Amino acid sequence: MQEHWDQHHFGAWTIIAKENESIIGFGGLSYKKYGEDEKLNLGYRFAVEAWGKGYATEFTKKAVDFGFNHLDKEEIFGLVRPDNIASVKVLEKAGMTQIGTLNDVPGQPESLVYRIQK
């Protein structure tokens, strides 16, 4: 993560709950290999106790806004495991649409590839 920050001047952030200032996860934008191609990837992980409270949706919308309006990027991608319905809904609420699949975890169903364009 630090190497990405050093090279690109952006990357993962710590996510803190406003109401009690506790760390509830991390996430951000970083370049990631999608097969042979490198894409600007949105990723996040939240503590179980933060699930279902809207934090992921809020974070995702802010990360997309940051990518478009501060980094001046034209498109942002996201990968999600097909059985992670909650994350599928988060990406869709943020305006992302599924554009394909990617075989990125050997022996597992293909991940869903989502994208949003400026």
Rank of each mutant, 00 (worst) to 15 (best):
I85V: 15
K39G: 06
V80W: 03
A50L: 02
G107L: 01
A94T: 09
F26C: 00
E110A: 12
Y44W: 10
K39E: 12
I23V: 15
A50W: 05
S30G: 11
G54E: 09
V80L: 09
V48I: 14
G27L: 03
L102A: 15
E110W: 07
E75K: 14
F26K: 08
E75S: 13
E74Y: 13
D37W: 07
G54A: 13
K89F: 04
I99A: 07
Y31F: 14
G28R: 03
N103K: 12
G43H: 05
F68Y: 15
E49A: 10
E38W: 11
D83M: 12
D65S: 15
G100Y: 07
K32T: 11
N41T: 07
L29N: 05
K53L: 12
L40I: 05
Y34A: 06
G28I: 01
A86V: 15
P106Y: 02
G43L: 03
E75R: 14
S87K: 03
K39D: 09
I85H: 15
V64E: 04
N69G: 04
F68Q: 00
D72H: 13
N69V: 00
E110F: 11
K73F: 08
G78D: 02
K53I: 14
H70N: 15
D83C: 08
D104K: 10
K62E: 09
A94W: 00
E58A: 09
I76R: 04
A94C: 15
R81S: 14
F68T: 07
V48F: 02
D83Y: 06
E75V: 13
N41R: 09
D72N: 14
N41F: 02
G107D: 01
E49G: 04
E38S: 11
V48M: 12
T57K: 02
K89V: 08
V113P: 01
A56I: 03
E36C: 08
G100H: 00
Y114K: 02
E36P: 08
Y34W: 12
K61I: 05
G25F: 09
D37V: 13
G25D: 10
N41S: 07
T57W: 00
G43C: 02
A56H: 02
K61C: 06
F77I: 03
K89N: 12
L91Q: 04
E74A: 13
E38K: 11
K39Y: 10
G27A: 04
H70G: 01
G100N: 11
G95T: 00
Y44A: 11
G78P: 09
R81I: 13
L71H: 08
V88S: 03
